[in-house]
């Protein structure tokens, strides 16, 4: 497995035990979604994967290297993260934000080609290239955040609630891009509250319930066969149509 999360526990302070013994795996080229209600600990898992929050116990490895170990760098491992808050630098222009995504890359010519590729994927970014990022709408900022993450040419793309608070038309656009990236063979770990859409695009999904425990996992078809999961979700999962 490319990413392996084994029995992790995460605490916020002394009183909040946000994740309690969660495990998940992501194979190369897979799109894995993590779904569940607010406060289930989904985003905390992603933060732990990126080394943003420390784990109290358990183990996270990426390509066999332990996350958080001395010398580990998510950037060197080419793990790209789009946080729920999008992490856009409001004081920088769209172009500067995009270039920042490739700050560690030395292949300048390929960087320029990648910028062009992302501008074709997200035409609105070309239009607003010199505009301050704070002036973008929420949907435009999300496109910028994803484009910036892709500038690293990531081996693993970690997306935290990419459609949160966006208009339906933008939600469609974001899911189209996620499917497009999946078709290109990119490995994606997606946390999403829109469970229906997440199950549609994912190869496998983990249903998480508070406090940070996996209730069920598998393809949409496999999850549909688990009464606990169906009861928790409130609907019967239907996956994407397999070719």
């Amino acid at each position: 497995m490319m990413l392996s999360v084994d029995d992790i526990h995460v605490h916020y302070g002394a009183s909040v035990h946000a994740v309690q013994g969660l495990s998940l795996q992501v194979g190369e080229g897979e799109l894995v979604s993590v779904i569940g209600q607010n406060g289930a600990g989904k985003s905390t898992v992603l933060k732990a994967v990126m080394g943003v929050v420390p784990t109290a116990s358990g183990r996270i490895t990426f390509d066999g290297v332990e996350v958080g170990a001395s010398g580990f760098s998510s950037v060197k491992q080419r793990m790209s993260y789009v946080p729920e808050s999008r992490g856009i630098f409001a004081g920088l222009t769209v172009g500067e934000n995009l270039r920042l995504g490739a700050i560690v890359r030395k292949d300048r010519k390929l960087v320029e080609a990648d910028i062009e590729r992302e501008l074709e994927r997200f035409p609105v970014l070309r239009r607003y290239w010199d505009r301050g990022a704070s002036l973008l709408s929420g949907g435009e900022q999300q496109q910028l955040a994803i484009a910036r993450a892709l500038m690293l040419r990531p081996r693993l793309l970690v997306l935290d609630e990419p459609t949160l608070g966006l208009a339906p038309i933008v939600v469609d656009l974001i899911f189209d891009v996620v499917e497009q990236l999946r078709a290109e063979g990119m490995t994606i770990l997606l946390v999403e509250q829109n469970a229906v859409r997440a199950l549609e695009v994912a190869d496998r999904s983990y249903v998480v319930q508070a406090p940070g425990r996996v209730l069920g996992e598998g393809t949409a078809t496999e999850l549909a066969a688990q009464p606990d999961v169906v009861d928790h979700l409130g609907f019967t999962p239907e996956g994407r149509v397999q070719p």
């Binding site: 992490g87 630098f89 500067e96 560690v104």
Partner: peptide, 13 residues
């Protein structure tokens, strides 16, 4: 400028 705005996000990039 990026670090001044959000050091953690800048480091993640």
């Amino acid at each position: 400028r990026a670090a001044a705005e959000d050091f953690r996000m800048a480091a993640l990039l």
